[in-house]
Every structure is written in C-alpha cells, then in structure tokens.
Design a protein around this nucleic acid. Structure first.
Lengths: 130, 130
DNA sequence: CTAGAACCTGACGTTGACGTCAGAGGCAAG
DNA sequence: CTTGCCTCTGACGTCAACGTCAGGTTCTAG
C-alpha cells in the first residue's frame, strides 16, 4: 500500500509517516519511481508507535525500543530497557490517578461546599512530592 | 517569602514561577522595589499547578480551572469543566494502562519466546483504536 | 492524452513551557 | 561602602512532533 492509504488506515497524517521514517521508526520499500510502499502489518506498527508517543516516549526512545519488540532479541539489556519504560508508565499512571483523585475531591467539595479542601490537600501533596 | 525560596520549596525554577504569573496562574504581592512576595500557601498552589501540567493540561485550561478550585464557585459550568478534565485524565489513564499491558506482553514474550505476539496484538490494538 | 489526485524532496513555520543571557537594580553582612 | 547574592524586566533560544508551503514528478480515470 502507498503512504496515503497507510495514513488513513492508521489514523495519522502522511507527514507523520515520513517523519517516522526519518526517525528510523518505520521502514518502507520504494518503487522504481521512488514512491513508498508498505506491507499490511505496517498499520499495526504505526498504531504501536502512536501508543508509545502518547505515553510520552520520545522518538529516540521508541527507536531504541522497537527492535526489542519485533526482532524479539531477548538480551538482558533489551528486557531491562522495556521494563524501565514499563515502570515509567506505571509511575505516570500512579501520578495521574493522584491528580484525578485530587480533582474528584475538588468536585465533591464544590458540589456540597464544606471545608473538605484542608482535609484532603496535605496528604495528597506529600504523596506526590515523594 | 521571595521567589527563590518559593522555587526551592516547590521544586520548580524561578523562571517557571514568573511564567505562571504571566499566564495568570499565580499572583504575587510586590514590595515597593518591585520584588515578588508570596504567602506560605503558594507552595501548595505551585505543586497543584505542576500536577495539572504533568497531567497534560495547558496553561489556559489550568487558568480556567483554578478559580473553580479556590474560589469554590459552584456554578454548573465550573463543575462541568472540572468533570470534563477529570474524564480526560481518566481516559488518559485507561490508554496508558493499555500501553503498559502491551509492553508487559512484549516483555513476557521476550522472556520466554513463544508465538504470543500474534495472540495478544489484535484485540489490544482494536481496543485502542476504538 | 490530459486533468486531477497522490506522491516526492527540501525547508521553513508552529506551539508550549520553559532555559538562558544581558543589563540594571536591590539587600544583608562585614 | 562595597562585595556578593538575589531579584527585576525584556527578549531571544530550545526542543519535539509534526503542519504547511513550494516546486516538481507520477499515477490513474475518463
């Protein structure tokens, strides 16, 4: 498939796909006239790349991770790299959960205004700064 | 307290505090010579601002949310605004959880290489694109 | 064969949350 | 009073993940 079709199927822009190639995240066959051609699994690959981007990973980090994913090279380094990013995401989830609970507390307080702020705020902030 | 002390206590840069003021997130008293002076609760406020930033909210959104938090104005609009952002964060948590599970699957596969990729990949990706 | 859609390679523009530097003034200590 | 640290206001720099435009080629439908 050509780049436009892949972009549509994966839900990203054509520019993004060219950028992924530039960053070494996504290879492409070239026709004799220079046009990019992708195999079907490229759709899933692009979606995976998008998942990792939206998890806050940089192009460089993703470029380091992807070989571990598809080449299935099970070196101790690759596994450590994957586990490290997994842990980063876990930490991010924990932090977001705290933020959400903080907002929930504010909402609850705003729905029936009591002095609940002073009760909730302190331990929550300590947990975050820790 | 002056800006340097607040920056240290809240764990952000002096530049960041001035930027928060510029964005209307953090007020400050001024001495006759023009230096900023903050009350003690500013520390918690800055930490809250940081929480919201790291949850992916923009300055503008935070500026709209903060009055709902401290003024405790319980208008239906303010509650809707808070709830909307809470839901956004919830969605973000769900997406991150999927990404983490995806990485976990890759790690498990990499630790004992079987054909687990083809089993796990499909339903997981559908859930994401949905 | 020809119009229009899709593709190509540069290359500059955008956005947000600051970093950083310049130049000038303010403040407590010795 | 002066040394040294803190603070002030601009204002330009940065970085990543693209958006967008220019100028040219290629594919496809009628």
């Amino acid at each position: 498939m050509r780049i436009g079709e892949l972009a549509t199927k994966a839900g990203v822009s054509v520019r993004a796909l060219r950028y992924y190639e530039e960053q070494g995240l996504l290879g492409a066959d070239r026709s004799s006239s220079g046009q990019r051609h992708y195999p079907e699994p490229a759709v899933d690959r692009v979606r995976l790349i998008q998942m990792l981007y939206s998890a806050g990973l940089s192009s460089r980090t993703i470029a380091e991770l992807l070989p571990c994913v598809d080449a299935k090279v099970s070196t101790p380094e690759s596994r450590a790299r994957l586990a490290a990013e997994r842990d980063r995401i876990d930490a991010q989830i924990a932090e977001l959960t705290l933020t959400r609970d903080r907002l929930d507390a504010v909402i609850a307080c705003s729905s029936s205004h009591d002095g609940c702020m002073t009760v909730v705020e302190e331990p929550l902030m300590e947990a975050v700064s820790a």
